[in-house]
Design a binder for these strands. Sequence first.
DNA 1: TTCTTTCTTGACTGATCGTTCCAGAATGTG
DNA 2: CACATTCTGGAACGATCAGTCAAGAAAGAA
Lengths: 193, 193
Amino acid sequence: MARPKEFDPNTALGKAMELFWRKGYEATSIEDLVTHMDINRGSLYETFGDKQKLFLACMDRYCNGMAASRLSMLDQPGPVLDTIRRFIRGKLQMALADPTRKGCLIANTAMELAPHEKEIRERVASALGGLEEAYYQVLIRAKKQGELRKDQEPRALARYLTTMMQGVIVMHKAGTTAEALREIVETGLAVLD
Amino acid sequence: MARPKEFDPNTALGKAMELFWRKGYEATSIEDLVTHMDINRGSLYETFGDKQKLFLACMDRYCNGMAASRLSMLDQPGPVLDTIRRFIRGKLQMALADPTRKGCLIANTAMELAPHEKEIRERVASALGGLEEAYYQVLIRAKKQGELRKDQEPRALARYLTTMMQGVIVMHKAGTTAEALREIVETGLAVLD
DNA sequence: TTCTTTCTTGACTGATCGTTCCAGAATGTG
DNA sequence: CACATTCTGGAACGATCAGTCAAGAAAGAA
């Protein structure tokens, strides 16, 4: 009869995600992971496969969290564009509340690994596409409710908003002040006016 | 009498910069550098110090190139805002012409190392500040010539433009198409309208 | 030609890398 | 209690890491 695991794979995966998110892929060693996840290296390999498979699982875990976050913030009553403004300002607040300035795992990975790893590039593109699609669906409603001008294209705006927030993440990691970041976001949101 | 070096330190530095720019800091080994720079490891250490000092020298080299590029594109005649538009579109063109999608060394470094390395964070902030300042000087002229509305703040717009381009870099590395990137940039430039 | 200084070549060091493997422990059924 | 199966702990493997060092080569002045 098999001995049950002494660790919870899901909890361990969450811890691995935190570490990869903060340090990146290359700078995170198996030793780092084993210590942070509080499991032994044999269990890590048996449960997750290898370092890259673990990383991919972490990206999935992160994207699941993002998807839930989008659902809870975009499906809200009131003026549609305000929904987007609140969502984006909320995202900025969350980033500003993070003293380690680890940014977004997807953006981090886009920069570090996407140009070199096809499977990772596809995962990143899929994640960004999901975020863009969420904006798009909301902007379509905004268009229908007359909140957008004729020349304001939902798809273009959705892509733009996704991109702008990536830029905010880069500036945040570079050390830009909270005040400056808020100003940048407000300036960028002017595209919706 | 000393034997002269068989390699040109400036040429070697340029090659190191290319490699760090493409692969990042952690993923680039001394072996990679030695091979790519076409010098031997003793010369690398004797000339540049160590890996991190070499990296910092590469950042300086990159920033010098950026500064020259800004000068040559921002000081131009004609409507001032068009100068910025051309500069940004030119930057996008340069990025799109790069099959390796290596992005911008400053943005890459902001994401990979800035949160963890104080000196690197300062260098990154300085570089981004220089770019922002260039936009700012041009936007002040635009304001004076009546090309900006009263509510359009040069400093806010300068920060915003710097940020938006970081976002474009992330999306480019993530695999976004040229068409989509052009649309994003045009949408983002609408803030200047 | 000799001598001094510096360069190149590449071996070497100690540490760490990702991954595999083994001994002993723990689990639960028969 | 015995047994089969799985888990934990952590050593070990082969490779690579950043950085150091020694032998021999090259340069040019005396």
